[in-house]
Design a protein around this nucleic acid. Structure first.
Length: 435
DNA sequence: CTGGGGAAGGGGCCC
DNA sequence: CGGGCCCCTTCCCCA
């Protein structure tokens, strides 16, 4: 006969003991903050602690101290709360770092939940895509506050991986930018670079992580022993195994994968600087911001639209570079003969939304011996530096048209498109560039 | 078919 | 932490 409440009751008791510092025989120091815990609980929950405490098991009479500088105290609080309650409080803000910490601590269940969380977010963004296009700007940005999503998830009986069911607020957009008519979106986060390049707009996916207010509690099933022994899953799906392998510190070449050093009865505190690991690949970066930037290559998020041609970029510096190269003709090189040109020896030519320079000789060859002098001044006036985030620097429709008309008058060989495709694209796609 | 050039895009890192 | 620069690789277009 089995009493179903026993395991949860036991866990609650352990958690209570932890809170009251009763029988705690392990101190974990995370960036100066001390967490008390029980060795046996940590041993059962984390492959990292299991390995560490195994090597340290001979001296059980002394309290163990662990020191971490690879994640924040808040992150470890989430981890530890999960260990003692089975509930994982994930938000869009912390999911990456929690996943990174779980990877470090070799807690595959937490990794799985984080992965599901991210994937669910991706699914939500897919479903919200069409709805988003029907929303007015007033609807999308009126209050800026999104109601929390209600997630509930339970472990699959046969798989051990969490399955989330969500009932998000369908009346709200998941994001205010970067939605594309991407009917070909793939459910798999990592995008092949080749695919992105072929048709960036169509291939782009969007990962929308819930906002901080959307605290999501993933709760493992009561009585599920897998939670406490995450390293022995045998029925994970193929995909799950792959993801776990990717984030497994050992198999993925994680910088801390050399195994914990247990000298002086202490956890390693001389950890390398590389702290943030991509949940989708083996890439590790030093800075959170770099990880955030890197993640865009997986999510396909392109928050920076070129206001001149509508092309979208994942990075502002790429947008700036694109704008300078394509629309500002900043390169002082004649496009035809490749010679260096200056304002005296050449002119800026506009072709559609593109601009480039031609030397005077080449200008004569193509029949453009005179060009409007105000092109240069306009070029300097319209600059990303004027406020690219707000997209104030973009060429307005009137400006574009005037340039086109002027250039058309001066050239017979250069076919200048009267209307560039950015007009349609801007209407359909370009949303306020909110970050 | 192939090689070169241009543009895009990713990573490292400085400010 | 964002912005921006530099360097490098990859991809695409075109001769």
């Amino acid at each position: 006969m089995e009493i179903s409440s026993h395991q949860s009751h036991l866990l609650e008791q352990l958690n209570e003991q932890r809170r009251q510092d009763v029988f705690c025989d392990c101190s974990i120091l995370v960036e100066g903050k001390v967490f008390k815990a029980h060795r046996n609980v940590l041993f059962a929950s984390s492959g990292y602690f299991k390995m560490l405490l195994s090597q340290n098991s001979k001296e059980t009479s002394q309290p163990t101290t662990a020191t971490f500088q690879t994640f924040s105290p808040d992150t470890f609080t989430v981890i530890l709360d999960f260990v003692y309650s089975g509930k994982l409080s994930l938000t869009g803000q912390n999911v990456i770092e929690v996943m990174s910490a779980a990877s470090f601590l070799q807690m595959t269940d937490v990794i799985s939940v984080c992965k599901t969380f991210i994937k669910s977010s991706l699914d939500i963004s897919e479903k919200e895509k069409d709805r988003y296009f029907s929303l007015s700007d007033k609807d999308t940005g009126s209050n800026g506050v999104e109601r929390p999503s209600v997630y509930s998830s339970s472990w699959q009986e046969d798989g051990g991986s969490p399955r989330s069911h969500l009932s998000p607020d369908h009346g709200k957009p998941w994001n205010k930018y970067s939605y594309h008519p991407a009917s070909q979106r793939s459910p798999q986060p990592p995008l092949a670079k080749h695919e992105q390049r072929k048709d960036p707009i169509k291939k782009t996916k969007h990962l929308r992580l819930p906002q901080p207010s959307e605290v999501v509690h993933f709760k493992s099933g009561k009585g599920d022993a897998r939670t406490s022994d995450s390293g022995h899953h045998v029925s994970q799906s193929e995909e799950q195994v792959q993801v776990d392998a990717e984030v497994d510190p050992v198999s993925a070449g994680y910088p801390y994968s050399q195994g914990p050093e247990v000298a002086s009865r202490s956890f390693p505190d001389n950890l390398p600087r590389l702290r943030f690991k991509c949940p989708y690949c083996t890439h590790v970066v030093k800075r959170k911001a770099d990880l955030k930037r890197h993640l865009r290559c997986h999510t396909g998020e392109r928050p920076y639209p070129c206001q001149a041609c509508g092309k979208r970029f994942s990075r502002l510096d790429h947008l700036s570079s694109h704008f300078r190269t394509i629309h500002q003709a900043c390169k002082l090189i004649c496009r035809k003969c490749k010679r260096h040109v200056t304002d005296l020896t050449g002119q800026v030519v506009q072709e559609g939304t593109r601009r480039y320079r031609l030397c005077n000789e080449c200008l004569t060859e193509v029949g453009m011996d005179s060009l409007p002098a105000d092109l240069e001044t306009e070029q300097h006036r319209v600059s990303p530096a004027d406020g690219d985030k707000d997209c104030r620097w973009h060429l307005s429709e009137e400006e574009n048209r005037s340039y086109v008309e002027i250039v058309e008058d001066g050239s017979a060989d250069l076919v200048i498109q009267q209307v560039d495709d950015s007009e349609e694209e801007e209407e359909k796609e370009i949303k306020p560039n909110i970050r």
